[in-house]
Design a binder for these strands. Structure first.
Lengths: 132, 132
DNA sequence: GTACAATTTCAAGTGAACTTGAAGTCAAGA
DNA sequence: TCTTGACTTCAAGTTCACTTGAAATTGTAC
């Protein structure tokens, strides 16, 4: 049970096998071992790697960014300046994302509460789009 | 100055003219007036509409969703149940997005702070990917 | 050993959100 | 009037994140 086929990994992770191969192709998932015959064999560690990818995606990272993030993690040297720089930049992007999402939340909440006919009237003066 | 060409609108909003025509095509931006000859003329109100679209996009809404959102705003009837239902559903999606972004933030922050070699060691037990 | 499912690679297709290109029309200045 | 640049429509191209299909190989169950 320590060695999983791509089908088992896909099933457990809720992905298609094609997605897993794609992740490997673009380098966000390390190349797994191969048994004689060429079939891939995964250790359970792959689930953590997949979970990281999915979380990063849901947080708005592109695959290219995830690739950089992951390659930082994969290196055998201590986390380097390169990873740190990217991570710090991403952190501020995440904060901006959160701020925007909260702005959108306010707009929707005021839309739900009020009885106005259009956007101009509906968003209270102080919360107009331009200000957000 | 009350009537703007598509080029002026694009310039001020930081978009391509093609994007503005595209928004009109898919119905997230109302059809503007046309002068003799067929050129579009916009009132300054278009900037608010564009700002709403951009904010919604940045908050993770698809164009199809924005279309529904906008059509709710555009109707001449008071904001109806249909708009409200969608908005409420989107609100909870936004909250989920914010939660995920905060989870990613925690991961990145611990990555920045620590000296570990890989993801397994790097994310403190309690904050492993699976738990987020 | 014979099915049959799962896997392999590689190329091409998909949907979303636009952009680019072609071919022609319109508007403003010299 | 002529030129130049902005505009028009329509179709096709682009990027991202995958999926789908084809054709061959491998692994497993009987």
């Amino acid at each position: 049970m320590n060695e999983l086929t791509i089908g088992e990994v896909a099933q457990s992770a809720g992905l298609r096998t094609s997605a897993i191969r794609y992740y490997e192709d673009i380098g966000v998932l390390p190349q797994p071992a191969r048994v004689y015959g060429g079939h891939r064999r995964y250790s359970p560690r792959v689930f953590q790697q997949l979970a990281f990818i999915q979380l990063a995606q849901q947080a708005g990272f592109s695959m290219a960014e995830i690739q950089t993030l992951v390659s930082g993690f994969d290196e055998n040297a201590p986390l380097g300046v390169r990873w740190r720089t990217l991570a710090e930049q991403k952190l501020s992007e995440l904060e901006a994302l959160i701020t925007r999402a909260q702005g959108m939340k306010r707009i929707l909440e005021s839309g739900i509460r009020c009885q106005c006919l259009n956007l101009d009237e509906c968003i209270p003066q102080k919360e107009r789009c331009e200000k957000l």
